[in-house]
């Protein structure tokens, strides 16, 4: 799925192709989804800095195990941090407590600073674990695994459609942008730019709706009845159980560390 941001692998690879993500890639997708949720809930429940640092280290270890490109993954994580940096910088000044220093008469408090550090650690630990455990799956595998985890059928259908057509629609978007560029369109802060982007969005939506009508006709013609034909079979192996047991033990350890 990374290709939406960077031109890389395809969304739909060969069904059943071997995942390249080391130890993590070999684990059962369903187990990875459940474990990611467990780890996220445990991490959010932690409140001491030492336990949160430990949780972030666990995520980092998972990253190493998964053989994901480390720099690219961390860069993506940093991108999320850039979203929240404003709020985190504000916190020390808005939370009452013992003063550290003051700027223009606004006192920064230790309590606020620790709270900000706490949020940053939690957010990064959870998102990193999620990207490593679930983000390494093929998007289609994610859909099938969610189906096996008894997500509502319609929701999984919707997810599969979205996954399938993001790439198609993105190509269409790039084609339209290319056409605009060859006609000398240069985006800036002006009415013309906003009007052009508005028409661009409108055009994309109209084309998407028309495409969906063709898809529906094609599906009907092939007798689609709302049933899933699953190409992948999932089976829990001893390795899955061992990994799940280990991660749950680590989670219990984190919770214990938090009470110390």
């Amino acid at each position: 799925m990374a290709h939406v941001l960077e031109p890389r692998a395809k969304t739909l690879s060969e069904a059943g192709a071997e995942a390249p993500y080391g130890l993590i890639g070999a684990l059962d997708p369903r187990m990875r989804i459940v474990l990611a949720c467990v780890f996220a809930i445990v991490t959010v429940a932690l409140s001491t800095i030492s336990a949160l640092i430990a949780a972030l280290s666990v995520s980092a270890c998972l990253l190493l195990l998964s053989r994901l490109p480390i720099r690219r993954t961390l860069k993506r994580m940093a991108m999320m941090d850039s979203f929240i940096i404003g709020m985190l910088l504000l916190l020390p000044f808005t939370m009452p407590g013992d003063a550290i220093f003051s700027i223009f008469g606004f006192a920064a408090s230790w309590q606020g600073l620790w709270k900000a550090v706490e949020i940053a650690l939690t957010a990064n630990a959870v998102i990193l674990a999620l990207m490593v455990l679930v983000g390494t799956q093929e998007p289609v595998t994610l859909g099938q695994a969610l189906h096996r985890l008894r997500c509502p059928d319609v929701l999984v259908h919707l997810l599969m459609f979205t996954i399938r057509y993001i790439e198609v629609l993105r190509e269409e978007y790039l084609r339209l942008r290319g056409a605009m560029k060859t006609r000398g369109f240069r985006p800036g802060t002006n009415w013309h730019t906003y009007r052009s982007f508005g028409y661009l969005v409108g055009m994309m939506l109209v084309r998407a709706i028309e495409r969906s009508e063709r898809i529906l006709a094609a599906m009907k013609c092939r007798g689609f009845s709302g049933q899933f034909l699953l190409l992948q079979d999932f089976a829990l192996t001893r390795r899955d159980y061992a990994f799940a047991l280990m991660l749950c033990a680590i989670c219990a350890g984190l919770l214990y560390l938090d009470t110390l």
């Binding site: 919707l158 979205t162 993001i166 969005v201 709706i209």
Partner: peptide, 16 residues
């Protein structure tokens, strides 16, 4: 479902 999936994908792309 196809229309909804298509629009969901469109809004995903638009958010980029």
């Amino acid at each position: 479902i196809p229309t909804a999936g298509m629009l969901s994908a469109s809004f995903f792309v638009a958010s980029l």
